[in-house]
Structure formats: structure tokens, C-alpha cells
């Protein structure tokens, strides 16, 4: 189905996007980079403070930990959902896909508030637990790390489900039939055929979820406890409250480098995987 395009057409098609990215992404990003090293003269002060502040180190570790946990939860849940969806007939899949997409269309702020009603001390789940236990059961589910992970997973799921489902749908069904004929059980078919062939989708999903969660801001602020602060919250603090833009930019750039390094690692892992196949 691939059509060959000549170079001129490719350039013409890509030009508007490149121009847009240059003006609205690269230029502001360059400004952030410049602000991080310029404060009435060139300075590395911002980066020195990032390197020496135990607060920033703690928050950085937090950010990484929460992002990885949320991405893994999304992967497990998302894979199961994607497999279920891939098995359906296209007509049936429609309404279910809408349900997957629903979080996409809801403001993250509204969702975070809604989770207060679901997970809260006086929330639906705890009220139900109290009702069936006669008042003795109660689980703290809000204002802690679990709540942050739940909130983030809810936001991330569509980004995980869609690429995995696409790669599952692309698989040649005859491979499975062949394996069945050769006597493979469902588990073996999954581990030897379905899973390896879906890895590009998994990589794409993990990549998106990880990058998105590294920059999360509202969810940890609204659902988290005191130990769930993330780097974006610190950037906000230094940008808006203390006007320390050198430090804010330095943190932002470090976060960017951080994400890029993770992405590179993932891409390399994917290449190795492909080479091994």
C-alpha cells in the first residue's frame, strides 16, 4: 500500500509542519535553554543548583518512580484491554473504543476531581466497604501515591491501548492457526507469537506514556499526598512564585534531557529486539 513520493512532494508536505514546529516549539524551547544559562551574563548557576539541591534530587527520583509505575500499570491494563478489543468484530469494537477514548475528551482537572468522589474517605468505594462490613472496613485511597497512579493511569490508558491494539490487529491470523495446528497451547501462542509481534505497539505506548507522565502536574497536585511532588510542580513554583527563571529553566532542561535519554534507551532496546528477531 506504500506509494512512492518524490523528494519535492515530501518537502512540500512537511514544510508547513516544520515551520510550525520551528516557530511554536523549537524557538520557545531555545529561549528556555538560553534562560537557563543567561542571567545578566552567562552562568551555570541554575545547573549547579540543580546538581546540588537535595530537594530537586528527591523530586526527580519521585518523578521517575511515579512515571515508571504509572506506565507499567497502564501497560498491563492497556494490553488486556487491547487484546480484548482486537478480538471483537469491527462493528462491536466501535462502542467499546468510544469508552476507551472517553478519558481523552474529559478535562484532566475534572477527572482528578471526580476521583476524589470515587476514592475519597467519604467516597463511593469506602461507603460501599463500610456498608458491607458494618463500618469496620476502610481504606485510605486518596491523597497518596496510589491515588496519583490511579489518576495517571486513567489519563494514560488510551495512549497505551490504541498503539497496542493497532499492532495486534496487524498480526497475520494464519500464524496463530499454524501454531495451533502444530499443537501450541494458548499460553505458548501468546508468549511466542502474539506478544513478540505486538512489541512495536508496546514500545510506542510505553514511549508516549512515559513522556507524558514525566511532565504530569495537576494529577499529583490534586490527588497526591505530601510526598508525591513532581518536577513540573517545582518548575511552576520557581516560574510563578519566586521568578527564578534561571533555575526553573534549568530544571525544565534537565527534565527534557532526562526524557530524551529514556526515549533513546527505549528506541535502542526496540532496535535490539528487532535485530534479534
Amino acid at each position: 500500500m506504500m506509494h512512492k513520493l518524490n523528494t519535492g512532494t515530501v518537502v512540500a508536505l512537511l514544510l508547513p509542519l516544520c515551520a510550525l514546529m520551528l516557530v511554536f516549539f523549537l524557538w520557545p524551547l531555545g529561549l528556555v535553554g538560553w534562560t537557563s544559562i543567561y542571567d545578566n551574563g552567562l552562568t551555570l548557576d541554575g545547573y549547579t543548583r540543580v546538581a546540588t539541591s537535595s530537594l530537586i534530587h528527591k523530586v526527580m527520583a519521585n518523578t521517575l518512580e511515579i512515571s515508571v509505575i504509572a506506565t507499567l500499570t497502564s501497560l498491563v491494563l492497556g494490553y488486556a484491554i487491547a487484546m480484548h478489543l482486537a478480538r471483537m468484530s469491527p462493528a462491536r469494537r466501535g462502542p467499546y473504543l468510544v469508552m476507551v477514548m472517553l478519558p481523552f475528551w474529559t478535562s484532566i482537572l475534572v477527572k482528578s476531581f471526580a476521583f476524589t468522589i470515587v476514592l475519597g474517605n467519604a467516597g463511593i468505594i469506602n461507603q460501599f466497604l463500610q456498608w458491607i462490613s458494618g463500618g469496620s472496613w476502610h481504606i485510605e485511597m486518596l491523597f497518596n501515591r496510589a491515588a496519583v497512579v490511579v489518576g495517571m493511569t486513567n489519563y494514560l490508558l488510551p495512549f497505551m491501548v490504541l498503539p497496542i491494539m493497532a499492532s495486534l490487529l496487524n498480526q497475520n491470523r494464519n500464524l496463530k492457526f499454524a501454531a495451533e495446528i502444530m499443537g501450541a497451547g494458548p499460553l505458548r501462542i501468546f508468549t511466542r507469537i502474539t506478544l513478540p509481534l505486538s512489541l512495536p505497539g508496546v514500545f510506542a505506548g510505553v514511549l508516549m506514556c512515559l513522556t507524558l507522565s514525566l511532565g504530569m502536574y495537576i494529577t499529583p497536585a490534586l490527588l497526591g499526598g505530601r510526598q508525591d511532588m513532581m518536577l513540573a510542580n517545582l518548575v511552576d513554583f520557581y516560574t510563578r512564585q519566586t521568578l527564578d527563571w534561571t533555575l526553573a529553566s534549568a530544571i525544565a532542561i534537565v527534565l527534557l534531557v532526562f526524557s530524551c535519554a529514556l526515549i533513546l534507551m527505549l528506541i535502542r532496546a526496540q532496535r535490539n529486539q528487532e535485530a534479534a528477531n
Binding site: S53, L55, K58, V59, R226, Q227, M229
Partner: peptide, 11 residues
């Protein structure tokens, strides 16, 4: 002090 307070919250 806000930096100290944030650190205090994280521990």
C-alpha cells in the same frame, strides 16, 4: 523557607 518546607514535606 518554602524550599525547606517542601523538603520537610517530602520526608
Amino acid at each position: 523557607l518554602q524550599r525547606r518546607f517542601t523538603e520537610w514535606m517530602l520526608t
